[in-house]
């Protein structure tokens, strides 16, 4: 194998090949009955259920409606994580004292899986909108904070010196030197946040009673509708990928603007 980058054609071929093999194996296992059908539905059943859910409601809403309601809570959780995590990370990167105060607490808290907050989310917010937002927030917050902090901490020292030599006050230093210098790291963190937040979604929706992809899946599980559960999984996968692609593009755009290689 050489290390040369793949051409688009090769990348598409290889990707399609992998997907075909995956679906082939899945078909083999499910249609031959090696795995009983009620445990593993066939790809065709899942696909038809997936499209059926666009028009036929399940658990009170169609799939796009579930997705929309999930996405709204997701957006709240991730935006809240970014709005708190990024400024806090930058401030910690600039003010040593704040770093020394926050880091020990944060280092302990960040190893708690988002799902572990479910009991408290339920306790504090009941079935209100705050609960799931809090779980998503718990998943999305650490990468926002860590990447903003690291980005700010590892700005080239000579740029900080240049800023200080020019008499730049603290707030301006954070906004015009640390923030742009940390931007690539922050966007990388947002990508991880967006991914973790989206992953936390199903767990978050265990405690909402109204709508959402996770809610739909939990309801389907209750009535052993494996095709519906898998349709939900596919929706989660596709949307997760779309979010990642968008943020990757943002990252590439930023790097190009900076004159770094894409």
């Amino acid at each position: 194998m050489t290390d040369r980058p793949l051409t688009l054609r090769e990348a598409v071929l290889l990707g399609a090949g992998g997907l075909a093999a995956f679906i082939g194996l899945w078909s083999l296992l499910s249609t031959t009955g090696i795995v009983p059908r009620q445990f593993l539905p066939t790809p065709l059943d899942v696909a038809s259920r997936f499209f059926q859910l666009f028009t036929t409601p399940f658990a009170g809403a169609t799939l796009p409606m579930h997705v929309a309601s999930s996405f709204q809570r997701y957006a709240y959780g991730v935006v809240l994580a970014a709005v708190i995590g990024i400024p806090l990370g930058l401030l910690m990167g600039w003010f040593r004292l704040l770093d020394d105060i926050v880091t020990p607490i944060f280092d302990g808290l960040r190893f708690i899986a988002p799902i572990a907050w479910v009991p408290f989310a339920a306790l504090w917010f009941g079935t209100g909108a705050g609960g799931p937002v809090m779980i998503i927030f718990a998943g999305a917050f650490p990468p926002c904070l860590i990447n903003a902090y690291r980005g700010a901490r590892f700005v080239e020292p000579r740029l900080i010196e240049a800023g200080r030599m020019l008499g730049t006050p603290n707030l301006r230093m954070i906004l015009e030197v640390l923030l742009p210098a940390a931007a690539p790291s922050i966007i990388a963190g947002l990508r991880v946040s967006a991914g973790l937040g989206w992953q936390s979604l199903v767990g978050a929706e265990l405690i909402v009673a109204a709508a959402g992809v996770g809610f739909m899946m939990v309801q389907a599980q209750g009535s052993v509708q494996t095709t519906t559960v898998m349709a939900g999984m596919i929706a989660i996968g596709i949307i997760g990928m779309l979010i990642d692609v968008l943020l990757r593009r943002a990252e590439a755009w930023l790097r190009r603007r900076r004159g770094l290689e894409a």
Partner: peptide, 11 residues
């Protein structure tokens, strides 16, 4: 200060 490596803000 004029630094050897310029130290301009790339953004």
């Amino acid at each position: 200060v004029v630094f050897q490596q310029f130290a301009l803000f790339p953004w």
